[in-house]
Design a protein around this nucleic acid. Structure first.
Lengths: 212, 212
DNA sequence: GACATAAGTGTCTTATCGACACCATAATAG
DNA sequence: CTATTATGGTGTCGATAAGACACTTATGTC
């Protein structure tokens, strides 16, 4: 009946320049000094795991109100050289347009393409890979794709999100067919006029509700 | 940076009499004295989470060598009236023929149909429902169905397992087509002679490997 | 030998998924 | 102003998967 250190670590995804990125934080303390690691920290005595994850996201990444979901718990006794630490990993999704609050120490937090990560501290690489796999799997049967977009988006935007997550190009017509016939998206009467030909805007059809 | 109590709880499934059952243990101590609860216990300082789950299964249920997979972690600060306890839940699957070792205190451990559970201690009902949903979802695209069967089984057996998990009858011909064309099952040259017409025996085709 | 029980087998229809090519519209470059 | 370029938007065909559906066969029991 021993007490253990319990942390949460969060894999925060976003899409920048059509590429899936993860937020990493440069460690200033030992162990793994100067290595990049996931945002995270200890769970306090009276907060839920999810609340801890949300708080760490706020404190370390300056991010508020994100889609947040539990990923997996990692408890190998040797995963932290300092001693026994169990971590409950979460993943989170933010749209590119929702900027990180500058409150976080910008010099240490940075976005990395998920396909080109630096060497990470602890077992964080494994955690990132686990999270990436999870959102790839959930792309088809849940709403995770929408969480990486602003409220209004074009079908082109949505396709780019899917392509960034699965890491390969998709057929435009097949993609649009699948999305529209699932009726999880609601066409608006507005068109985006930027760029080339105006594109119709859509929003997530909240009548369906969020599926996890 | 507070230390927290960390437990593992295990939802152990089996199929008895064509119905999905869960193993529960009657609590002898407070809180929830005399209520049924999931087998589980504290994680020791130097064992992994999975090792803790396997150990508790051995100690409390007398079960060895089962399919064991992490389910979810529950960390509501109020989930245990004694104080803060984070639990990492696992689910496990055993075949009906693999008997529980009598070593466990048989008077307190008992199987309950998952559809007719007694009132459970803590948040264990939620954990069982979460596990049930998980294996239902995984039935189609993983091997969980086989883990509830002995090494050799008939397609009729396998169909009964699927029916017990999804809770409804399946069409025999469609089921057999799906199973056989996925080639995840290997026909043997043996027939089971019990019952009525002899039925061909199969085994899980381990060439495919286990898919989680 | 009649009956009860589970094993085993095929077709048709429908839905889904992937492959595939062209025109339209607006901004920008020359 | 017109040529270029980038993105938006659209339909068909074939393959595959999935669901609905009924009868015959082998064995044990009464």
């Amino acid at each position: 009946m021993s007490r253990l250190l319990v942390t949460v670590d969060i894999v925060l995804f976003t899409i920048r320049e059509r590429v899936l990125h993860v937020l990493l934080i440069r460690r200033l303390a030992r162990p793994f000094e100067n290595r990049y690691a996931l945002p995270g920290g200890f769970v306090l005595e009276d907060e839920s795991l999810e609340a801890a994850a949300a708080r760490e996201l706020r404190e370390e990444a300056g991010v508020e109100k994100v889609y947040l979901e539990q990923l997996y718990s990692f408890g190998d006794p040797k995963r932290d050289p300092r001693g026994r630490v169990v971590t409950v990993a979460y993943y989170a999704l933010v749209s590119e347009t929702q900027p990180l609050r500058a409150g976080s120490d910008a010099s240490v937090a940075a976005w990395f393409p998920v396909a080109q990560l630096p060497t990470l501290a602890f077992d964080h690489r494994k955690i990132v890979e686990c999270a990436h796999q999870r959102i790839r799997n959930k792309l088809d049967y849940t709403n995770v794709g929408f969480e990486l977009l602003p409220e209004m988006f074009t079908l082109g935007d949505l396709q780019l999100v899917h392509e960034a997550i699965v890491g390969q190009a998709l057929d435009k017509r097949n993609f649009r067919r699948k999305i529209t016939q699932k009726a999880i998206v609601k066409p608006l009467k507005e068109w985006r006029k930027t760029g080339r030909k105006p594109a119709q805007l859509f929003r997530f059809s909240d009548e369906v509700g969020h599926i996890h």
